[in-house]
Design a protein around this nucleic acid. Structure first.
Lengths: 150, 150
DNA sequence: CCTGAAAGTATAGGGCC
DNA sequence: GGCCCTATACTTTCAGG
């Protein structure tokens, strides 16, 4: 992992479909070393995959909600069950176990506030062990950046 | 935007470098309509770009911190200044203006706890108008999913 | 690391239902 | 309007130096 690798990753962050020629031009190498480096980064697990940045709004997900969740018990069992339950809820896009005043932070994507109310009532409130939750609706996204590599 | 478009997007979500042949096979179309649909989704702004999923750990960002920020004043001016300041801090990966008990939620990527302490002291605490902040370190990532499309 | 050749892919024309 | 097929230019992939 040298500076050239990081430059290549920076290019791929901004356009994962850039051709090897474009990447090579940007970092000052010919296509073959770029290709070899990328394969190494893929095999080494630095590159986990390639994905598309989608406009959630355009796809009908008008609202994003950040949910703080506090559990009753912190036994291994409760914790694991909670994780499994979240995995099965497609609206839950991200879920983190965190330190601090609450236990979990979720990022949830929903069509509208009614959809969110349904999710809370029918899904989150039904999960055993959840003491309480606090919802924060995202009013505006100020920043969404890539990891700083160079 | 029909079901085929959503299927194509689902394929791209899981692998943005899938060839048109693979995409076509997955959705039951030949390559040309897939290509046309993708171009339309790009031009229509549904597809905002293509990016790479990177292993933050492997790149030296061992810690992720979620920071709740509360501002003193809620004037347009303070709000805008705050947004601009955040834009210039590379460690701040995401920033949301939210409803609820606090004003902003930030996702911050740092090398270690010392790096985070430095960021707090030298950057966040220096921003005018910040009343207080609460940090939650991410202990474990339970889920990181794509938007549910089909 | 480079050059370069072979296999695979994106892009765009024309035709079909 | 949306599909399929086909030709050409570009890309990926991997040899040999």
């Amino acid at each position: 992992m040298d500076n050239l690798d990081r430059k290549i990753l920076a290019v791929l962050q901004s356009n994962a479909r850039a051709s090897l020629q474009e990447i090579g031009q940007a970092v000052g190498l010919s296509t073959s070393p770029c290709w070899e480096r990328i394969k190494k980064l893929e095999l080494g697990g630095v590159i986990e995959g390639y994905t598309v940045r989608l406009n959630a709004q355009a796809l009908g997900f008008a609202d994003t909600v950040m949910v703080q969740v506090t559990l009753d018990s912190h036994s291994d069992n409760t914790l694991e069950k909670f994780g499994e339950t979240l995995a099965a809820i497609p609206e839950v896009i991200e879920a983190y176990l965190v330190s601090g005043e609450y236990d979990y932070l979720l990022r949830v994507a929903v069509k509208d506030t009614r959809d969110y109310e349904r999710l809370l009532r029918e899904r989150l409130y039904k999960i055993k062990g959840v003491r309480h939750s606090k919802s924060s609706f995202v009013l505006r996204t100020l920043k969404k950046a890539d990891l700083p590599l160079v």
